[in-house]
Design a protein around this nucleic acid. Sequence first.
DNA 1: GCAGCGCCTTGACCTGCATCAAGAAATGGC
DNA 2: GCCATTTCTTGATGCAGGTCAAGGCGCTGC
Lengths: 220, 220
Amino acid sequence: MRPQLHPLSFKGSIDKLQQSAPYMKEDTTFQLLLSSINEKVRLTETEMQVCKSFFTPKKLLKKQLLLQHQEVCHFIAFVVQGILRSYTVDAKGNEHVVQFALEGWWISDNYSFLTGEPSTYNIDALEDAELLLLSRPAMDELLLKVPAMERYFRILMQNSLVALQRRLVGSLSYTAEEKYTNLIRTYPDIAQRVPQHQIASYLGIKPETLSRIRKQLTSR
Amino acid sequence: MRPQLHPLSFKGSIDKLQQSAPYMKEDTTFQLLLSSINEKVRLTETEMQVCKSFFTPKKLLKKQLLLQHQEVCHFIAFVVQGILRSYTVDAKGNEHVVQFALEGWWISDNYSFLTGEPSTYNIDALEDAELLLLSRPAMDELLLKVPAMERYFRILMQNSLVALQRRLVGSLSYTAEEKYTNLIRTYPDIAQRVPQHQIASYLGIKPETLSRIRKQLTSR
DNA sequence: GCAGCGCCTTGACCTGCATCAAGAAATGGC
DNA sequence: GCCATTTCTTGATGCAGGTCAAGGCGCTGC
C-alpha cells in the first residue's frame, strides 16, 4: 500500500493536540508543525527553536479571507486547526476549488508567493482556523539559518507535485462517480467536514450532479 | 506579462547549441543543463564541474522506452535534444499523456524516483533524443557536495507545481477548444513537433474531437 | 511503384453531465 | 422559537464531446 501524499503537505494526527490543557497552548501550536518537519528532515533542538521564531500565529474565522484575488500572497500558511480552501473564479464566473487544507497541511498561492505577482486565487476558511504564517523574508532567512529546511520544502513540493499529477490524470480518466468515490476513500475527513457543493467544485462537477451520484450510491 | 512556467523545468534556447561544431560536443551537451541551473542558482566553476560528473549521457531512438510501467524509476532525465512524453494507461485501456519534455526540460516519475515504488507511468521518445540522467544515488551525493542544488530542485518543483495547478484548473474550467488554443499559444513548439493524437491525449480529448476543433478554427 | 501502416478527417448517432427551475431541509442569528 | 440564509434534492431538457464506422492521405520499406 502506497503512503498517501497530500497536496502541499501531509496529514498529521491531532487527537492529542485537541485534548491538551490550555497552559500548553504555546507548545501545542507548534507541535504539529515540528512533527511535520521531523517526519522529513532531522533538526537539532536549537534549529527547531530557530524555526519556531520565524512563524507568526494567526486566527481566522469561518468565511474570513486569508488571501484575496489580485493581492500578492506574502506568506505560506500551515494549518494548525480548521479547514481552508483556495479557489479561483473563472471567466464564466464559476468557482473552482483548487485545494483544501486541513490540520497539518500547507496552503498558499505558490506562484504569487515566489514571484511577487498578484494572486489569481482566493483563500478562505471553511471552519474557524488557527494558522502559522511564514512570510517571504522570514522564509528566506530561515533557509539561510536552517539549510535543512530547504530539503523539507523540496520534499513538500515533490509530494504535492505527485499528488497533483494523480489528480490531473484522475480528472481526465475517471467519471464523476469514480472521482467522488476516490475522494471519500482517500480523504474521508474532507468528505465529512466540507459542504457537498465545495466538494463538487473541487471535483469539477455541479452540486446537482454530486447529489444524484450520492443518491445512486446509497441505493446500492 | 508573466514568465512562463513549465512542468518540471523551463524552456531554454537551443539555437547556439545546434549550430556548434562536432568537436564541441562534450561542452554543448552540458551547456543547456548548466544554463538551466545558472538561471536559478549561482554555482562556482568547480561546483559546475562536480555537477557534470554526476550525470550520465544517454541516447534514445524514436519510440524507444526510457521507463516502463511497473519498473522503478531510477533517474530523473534532462532533455538535451528531442522530445519525450510520459503517459499512463488507465483501467479502460486509454492512454493519457501526463507530460511532454522538450529541450531544456526534466522528465521522470517523481513518485517512483523518490519512494522506490514501481512506476505507474511509461516514458518514451517521440523523436530521437539525447538525455542526461541523474540517478538516485548520484542525486543524493550531488546534493551533499553541492548544496545549492537542493535549492535548484526546490525551485524546479515549485515551478512545476504552479504549472500543474494551472493545467488542472484549466482542465476543469475550459472547453476543449479553449484548452487547445491555450496549448498552442503557450507551447507552439509542442503543437508543431508532436502528432495531433498525442496532443489530444494530453488535453484529455479524443483525436476526432481535436480534428473537428481544428477545422472550426481554420474556417474562422 | 505499391503494399502496409500510422495518422487525420468526416459523418451519424449516443450519453453523461450541465442547465434551468423549484422546493425541501438544515443551519444559524437573535 | 422563528425567520433568513445556506445547502441539498429532484425533475425536465439541452448540448459538448464521446463512440463507432468508414475512408483518405502520406510516409516508409522493399
